[in-house]
Amino acid sequence: MVAIETKELNKSYGGVPVVKGIDLTVEQGEIFGFLGRNGAGKSTFINMLTGIIPPTSGDYSLLGVKGPNDQVKKRIGVMPDYSTLYGSLTAVDHLKFLSALSGKKVTKEQCLQVLKLVGLESHVHKKAGKYSFGMKKKLGIAQAIIHDPELIFLDEPTSGLDAESVLQIHTLIKALQKRGKTIFMTSHNLAEVEKLCTRIGIMKEGQIVKIGTMDELRAFYRSTMTVQLKHSTIPTGEQRTLYQWLESVGRDLVIEDTNLSITIDDEKKIAEMIRGFNRCKTDIYRVEVKEPTLEEIFLDED
């Protein structure tokens, strides 16, 4: 069953598009990770799905129900990217109030159980106004799951948390998935996404530019590599022929004296290029192959 489906979802501010016609499908039981630079439109997208901001155009459905729908809101849990808690309420008061708002009354014991899962068990009677940033973040996660929702939106759930807390939240997210929950999360932490997510979407300038499993994305980027060559001077008569031939082998050809850089899709083309240079009576002195780093995979600008 489909947990999230969007069709041509758009958001503009004053005519400036921030989210541009996103079509996305997330299956139930997935942990879907959304990556992108600041301002890429991740939070705007998540805020539209959760009813925080109305979309400019397009449709979306959550758990098979066309949104925004009040009944489906009771079946989702949301941890917004930025929100202030009710300063005068304790953690238990927060959970009781917000859970009741979702149509589910919870006992103090149930609240304590959830607070223990996020590592807030020793601060349950403290008012949220006195919480540290990390504690607020944890309570934000707790309130998103207190009413046992089927679909959980987590906007940067671990940013600003210490290493131990991050591990605790990761364990919780995995446990939630095992219980059949669907999790849609955004993050800047590449290792976190790699570790947790079953599928990843990369967003750039309001559009999803890449989508797939971690292996699919790696495979895609590994097939692209930049080759840098240092060679002897190319005989004048051969230059034009060699450059034309190189452009047919790869792309993004950059020539600087006797240095050359080219992007190819298959490593077998390296040998082919060396042979091509030899045919044109040019020696190769050095070959460097540059594969994309993990960071480049996610923050690829091209």
Partner: peptide, 10 residues
């Protein structure tokens, strides 16, 4: 922004 807790629930 506490309204975010409200609008996502009701």
């Amino acid at each position: 922004r506490t309204s975010r807790f409200l609008v996502t629930r009701t």
